[in-house]
Design a protein around this nucleic acid. Structure first.
Length: 582
RNA sequence: GCCCUGGUAGCUCAACUGGAUAGAGCAACGGAUUUCUAAUCCGUAGGUUGUGGGUUCAAGUCCCGCCCAGGGUACCA
């Protein structure tokens, strides 16, 4: 029924899982086996993989779990890849891989047939919305999590064969432009603008903002400029376009440094023409109603939203971001028919997205999109308060990246002063930017995260430099090999514990990638490659590669090569480049 | 007030449908370098998972109460 085919070699745990489910269905026709999963054992002494699902099944049917387990084992034929299955504790099944099965998986990977993961046979289309900076404001440290997390998720989905549309929903419309237009017309410093456009625009905004706090007539004028812009005034539109161009130029510079890309950049203004129609439909369908002069949607049958109505048209007649987001969602549904739309923003917007999703479900009943808010915690300084510069300013992203590269440059120059300066600069770029990204991705996204140069650029521990160093050690071995041609081993003996542990860990790559997309948590991948780098380090210390001879040498070289490929693929999925030396 | 998060080792963080003895790193202490990059490895120590109950064969994880922290809470996004 399940021959030891290609699937077995790629992801053994899935084959075990499928066979287990079949065995259960034979015994208990009609049972729901969707929750029957095979997972890695928490402790190697129990085996390589386990399932705890039989205990749950036994409980539902009031059976003795160990007796059920015995019957299942009776039905289960996994002898081609496992030692005899053990029943343990209250009803766990423990699987221990045969070395020959492990060896077969490694051989096929070494032949380039796979890299321990299986692309999906049912590709889905997923829209991912991330980054979303505001025009006329410099990107700051608050944008980095959304940008990094969002693009990492996009790459992970793509690696597993899904179609992804990434969309940068930039803030290019809204009330701030009234003040910006006043500032532009009265106080613009062209020199400063050409030096650093976003800083100049930010200055203008702050200037007018504080002026309008003191002087009501300034605010009135700002509103007037905004109305003119919205009515299509030529001069204001031209200024607005210039502000957008200047901003996007600087965003692109940052995205270039971060290696982040988008398929679409449809800002808020793209949906302007649709906003009135959206509100009209909501009113016509009886979803929105008038309240204090605004058009409002109430969620009375919803516990957590009961006291939190959503405004879709302000009393001054203007739409707000809920309306824009509804139009955006409609556009995404119509354009790409995604099965999933993922928003990557900070946790403070949870209420907004609850409202949005609930509202969209009412507006477009029967749509089949899964709407997900993937939120993350704040970035804090080492004092535990929101991360700011010493003078209390928000930290700008460009300066942050500069400092990361500088610190990495100092480190590499100290460790390896003989490398050419140009190479040291490149290493510094890869390590510095990588360190920032990795520090951001390696924690649970929902935790607040404490920004610490020392922690992220530490040379040991779960950091980018440690992982990149592991890659350079592997590269170094292959450099020493020179022109010598590699012989692919026909099998792997895996006599040394370090070889065995490393090999088994390689096989778990696919499982981890699945977990990342299931829960939108790249830290699972970080943990995995950190463990992989650790197992490789032990292997490296204990198992000489180039000094070994014959089959052992070929096998160890292949293990190095496979580890290098998985590390590189994992790191690239996280958005990290790798280097030859460091 | 109400709603949403979170509270795990001195510090920063993990912990996979509830699963077996809660794991790493940093800091501390002890060891390893004729060697494929020591930006490394091995070891020691460190815990009543905020707190009190409950459900379960099994709870950091689920349910209820309380304490603490952060965020949100009608016309900013």
């Amino acid at each position: 029924m399940f021959p030891l085919g290609q699937a077995t070699r790629i992801v053994i745990h899935l084959v075990l899982q499928e066979k287990l489910q079949q065995a259960i269905l034979t015994l208990m026709p009609g049972a729901d086996v969707s929750s029957v999963l095979v997972r890695p054992c928490p402790e190697p002494k129990f085996g390589d993989y386990q399932t705890n699902a039989l205990m749950g099944l036994a409980k539902r049917d009031q059976l003795n779990p160990r007796e059920l387990a015995a019957q299942v084992v009776e039905q289960l034929n996994v002898a081609d890849c496992c030692e005899p299955v053990e029943i343990a504790g209250p009803g766990f099944l423990n699987f221990r891989l045969k070395t020959e099965a492990l060896s077969a998986a490694l051989v096929s990977a070494a032949n380039g047939e796979h890299l321990f993961y299986r692309a999906t046979t049912e590709p889905r289309t997923i829209v991912i919305d991330y980054s979303s900076p505001n025009v006329a404001k410099p990107m700051h440290v608050g944008h980095i999590r959304s940008t990094i997390l969002g693009y990492t998720l996009a790459r992970t989905f793509r690696l597993l064969g899904h179609r992804v549309v990434t969309d940068n929903h930039i803030g290019d419309w809204g009330t701030q432009f009234g003040k910006l237009l006043v500032g532009w017309k009265d106080h613009l410093d062209r020199d400063a603008l050409s030096q650093d456009a976003l800083a100049e625009m930010e200055r203008l905004y702050k200037l007018v903002n504080s002026a309008s706090d003191k002087d009501g007539s300034v605010l009135t004028r700002a509103r007037g400029e905004l109305v003119k812009l919205q009515d299509g005034d030529t001069e204001n539109l031209a200024i607005w376009h210039e502000m957008i161009d200047l901003s996007r130029h600087q965003f692109d510079e940052i995205y270039g440094r971060l290696g982040v890309e988008f398929d679409e950049t449809l800002g808020e203004s793209f949906y302007n023409a649709r906003l009135k129609g959206v509100v009209d439909e909501l009113i016509a369908q009886g979803i929105a109603e008038e309240s204090d002069g605004a058009q409002v949607v109430f969620f009375n049958d919803h516990k957590s939203l009961k006291k939190h109505p959503a405004i879709v048209r302000k009393s001054d007649g203007a739409a707000n971001y809920t309306t824009t987001d509804l139009a955006t969602l409609e556009h995404r549904q119509d354009s790409w028919q995604p099965s999933e739309v993922i928003y990557v923003t900070d946790g403070r917007q949870q209420l907004h997205f609850q409202q949005l999703f609930e509202l969209y479900n009412r507006w477009k009943p029967g749509h089949s999109m899964k709407l997900k808010h993937v939120w993350f915690g704040a970035i804090l300084g080492e004092d535990g308060k929101p991360f700011k510069t010493r003078s209390g300013e928000i930290v700008r992203l460009s300066g942050l990246l500069d400092e990361a590269e500088q610190r990495a440059f100092d480190a590499v120059s100290e460790k390896n002063p003989d490398l050419p300066e140009e190479e040291r600069h490149n290493i510094a770029r890869v390590v510095g930017i990588g360190a920032i990204k990795y520090a951001d991705l390696s924690g649970n996204r929902q935790s607040d995260y404490e920004f610490s140069w020392d922690n992220m650029l530490a040379l040991v521990g779960n950091t980018a430099p440690y992982l990149l160093y592991a890659v350079t050690r592997i590269r170094s071995i292959f450099r020493k090999l020179g022109d010598e041609s590699l012989t692919q081993p026909g099998s792997f003996a895996l006599d040394q514990t370090e070889e065995l542990t490393l090999a088994k860990h390689l096989l778990r790559f696919g499982l981890v990638l699945e977990q990342v997309i299931d829960e939108c948590r790249p830290n699972y991948l970080c943990n995995y490659i950190y463990e992989l780098a650790g197992y490789f380090a032990s292997f490296y210390e204990n198992c000489p590669v180039l000094q070994a001879e014959g089959d052992i040498r070929a096998q160890r070289l292949a293990l190095c090569n496979l580890t290098g490929q998985v590390l590189k693929t994992g790191l690239e999925t996280l958005g990290l480049e790798t280097t030859e030396r460091m």
